[in-house]
Design a protein around this nucleic acid. Structure first.
Length: 586
RNA sequence: CGGGCUGUAGCGCAGGGGUUUAGCGUACUUGUCUGGGGGACAAGGGGUCGGCGGUUCAAAUCCGCCCAGCCCGACCA
């Protein structure tokens, strides 16, 4: 017992505002730009500790708890079992999976006293495989689906927007292990549906999109995205058929002119350094120019040729040539290899680079292949060639779709117009295949005695960011309008006036409703209570006044609703329980 | 990592060409009155003026360095 009779003595889970560790803020700090950030801060849900690091106050913690409950139910519905893995991982498993080399500075590496090398895990595929290795011993135990709520640390270059991008965040991450691709493919859509239900319950308009797998490996992934100008991802969408894909991997169609190939010519191109300058100088549209971007990967140089009005998608290029990471070469690197950055081209490559212990690969975009009579550089300063045609004048080792879809392209599926849209990534689900189980040596003997590596899926969902998205999608000028499933408290109870009689009635209601109610017992004006109730975003307000109390009634007012509803004080908990469905359905 | 902007009370801001006690609104404390949308009056408390160093008899103010926060950008040859 902490103390007797003091503020800590209550044994019932109730909360009076005067005891709540929280503070609403009337003015938005000027450094705050994003609405969800402003509202969560002003409502007393979070406080910054440092750049990209936030503490959750009691109200914020309660919202997170509800989010977890909602997500947990869905995961259990999928047959998931909750586990809890360490935040830190031995670096060795990351080296074994090959991702230590791929993850850059986003992953914090450090040593503990014994000299052992650890990392702060930015995600948990490796550790999860290790766990499964140690407990699952037979293929007959598969499939297995494990999930956890665990902190991730990613040393983000630039945290921003409050909870939208933080260095440290809690994620629900799930991992499934299957006997076959077929089994994974049967499971995958069920996760997809569970995610859809979660976002619906959160009243967040999330749209699924095809995405790039990035550093996660695997062959296919889907993101769940919420359109918002405060997001930091881009998708390409088709208004016609609804096609949606991350801009890194989106596909689209582009017109190319029909022309007979002309005779190759040579033009002086002075000081033009960019496609735009070149286009201006020559009076040729950018779509009739070609440019070459140089990527490096170990001891390979990759020359990616796209049309002058296009940009290389390093994601598409990476996938096409099956490399795990790909870096655009910087100018120093080009200089080192004797390449003129502004005039790099698959044509006229310097002989000495071809002789080096370096493999030089030329990858050509399909649009370049189709576009006749292009103007292209030739590794010679100030000179370009005209009427260059792929196949006749140069060719690549591989031809494929390696350019980004830019606004103006047409939908590959319906011919509609493709547009760019800014979005916030809320969840990401991956079909991983056997990359991790193979690398980390997780295998079982199947029914025929043959060893196989389980096929994996992984499923992420960021809680803080989801909370921000809910606030972003459900607010007005007054504050957040929490969906009842997530609200920190379901009822906000207040009495008008200070009479002892009303106070006593309020206490009674307070105890009867228990943990569902936040009782505003402060001696502040009624209007201040209204404002705070709005800002915090409690869905339902219970108002006691002399007028109604005399008749044994209390007013119920849903957030944003004009006229109150009168309910008998006697048996209020039961009455509200009966009304729940009707109220929440609105 | 590069560029820009900003640091004065919890928050929002003023002062800033060098001068004695650094101010306003709000928030906070106490009291009285009030009470259906941040109420009124009165009395209070709270500051190493981001940090360090320099110039000076004297620095929030001038100079230098550093730090922090926010915003933008990060290579398309």
């Amino acid at each position: 017992m902490l103390c007797q009779g003091g503020p800590f003595s209550s044994t019932i889970a109730t909360m009076r505002y005067s005891r709540l560790v929280s503070k609403t803020i009337r003015e938005t700090p000027k450094s705050v730009r994003v609405p969800s950030h402003a509202l969560l801060l002003r409502g007393g849900f979070i406080r910054p500790l440092s750049q990209g690091l936030f503490s959750y106050l009691p109200l914020g913690t309660r919202v997170v708890r509800r989010l977890k409950r909602l997500i947990r139910e869905e995961m259990i519905g999928l047959g998931g079992q909750e586990v809890f893995l360490p935040l830190t991982n031995p670096r060795q498993i990351w080296i074994d999976s090959g991702r230590d080399a791929i993850y850059g500075e986003d992953m914090i590496r450090f040593e503990v006293r014994s000299g052992k090398k650890l990392v702060l895990a930015p995600t948990h595929e490796e550790a999860m495989v290790e766990l499964v290795k140690s407990v699952v011993t037979s293929y007959r135990e598969l499939p297995v689906f494990l999930f956890q709520f665990q902190t991730k640390f990613r040393n983000e270059e630039r945290p921003r927007g409050g909870l939208i991008r933080t260095k440290e965040f809690v994620m629900k991450d799930g991992y499934s292990f299957h006997r076959s691709f077929t089994e994974l493919n049967n499971f995958f859509p069920r996760v997809f549906e569970a995610y859809t239900r979660i976002f619906q319950a959160c009243r967040v308009p999330a749209v699924p999109a095809e995405s790039s797998v990035g550093m996660m490996m695997g062959d296919r992934s889907y993101e769940f995205l919420m359109p918002t100008e405060h997001g930091d991802d881009l998708v390409i969408r088709c208004a016609g058929c609804g096609y949606t894909a991350n801009a890194d991997v989106a596909v689209g169609d582009l017109d190319s002119p029909e022309e007979e190939p002309g005779e190759v010519g040579r033009v002086e191109t002075g000081r033009a350094h960019t496609m735009e300058q070149l286009s201006g100088e020559l009076g040729v549209p950018r779509s009739r120019l070609a440019k070459t971007m140089v990527y490096s990967h170990d001891d390979e140089l990759i020359l990616a040729v796209v049309r002058g009005d296009q940009e290389v998608s390093s994601e598409k290029l990476r996938a096409l040539i099956r490399r795990t990471s790909l870096q655009l070469a910087d100018r120093d690197e080009l200089q080192f290899h004797g390449i003129l950055a502004d005039y790099v081209s698959p044509i006229g490559l310097p002989v000495d680079i071809l002789n080096l212990n370096l493999s030089v690969r030329v990858i050509v975009d399909v649009v370049v292949e189709r576009t006749p009579n292009l103007t292209i550089a030739t590794n010679e300063e100030g000179v370009h060639l005209t009427n260059v045609n792929h196949g006749r004048d140069f060719s690549g080792e591989i031809t494929g779709d390696i350019s980004r879809v830019l606004p103006g392209a047409r939908c590959h599926h319906c011919g509609g117009e493709l547009v760019e849209e800014r979005v916030l990534e809320l969840g990401h689900i991956f079909r991983l295949g056997d990359y991790y189980s193979r690398r980390l040596k997780l295998s079982f003997a199947d029914a025929t005695g043959r060893r196989f590596h389980p096929v994996m899926g992984s499923y992420g969902l960021g809680l803080g960011r989801l909370m921000a998205a809910v606030a972003e999608a459900n607010h007005d000028k007054r504050g957040i309008n929490w969906p009842p499933a997530l609200a920190p408290y379901r009822y906000f109870l207040m009495a008008i006036g200070r009479s002892a009689k009303l106070a006593k009635i309020a206490e009674g209601i307070h105890e009867e409703l228990g943990d569902d109610v936040l009782f505003d017992d402060r001696r502040v004006s009624i209007s201040a209570k209204f404002k705070d109730a709005d800002l915090i975003g409690v869905p339902y307000r219970l108002i006691l006044s002399h007028r109604t109390a005399e008749r044994g009634e209390v007013e119920l007012l849903a957030r944003g609703m004009r006229s109150p509803r009168r309910l008998p004080i006697r048996g209020i908990a039961a009455t509200l329980g009966d009304l729940a469905e009707e109220l929440d359905g609105a």
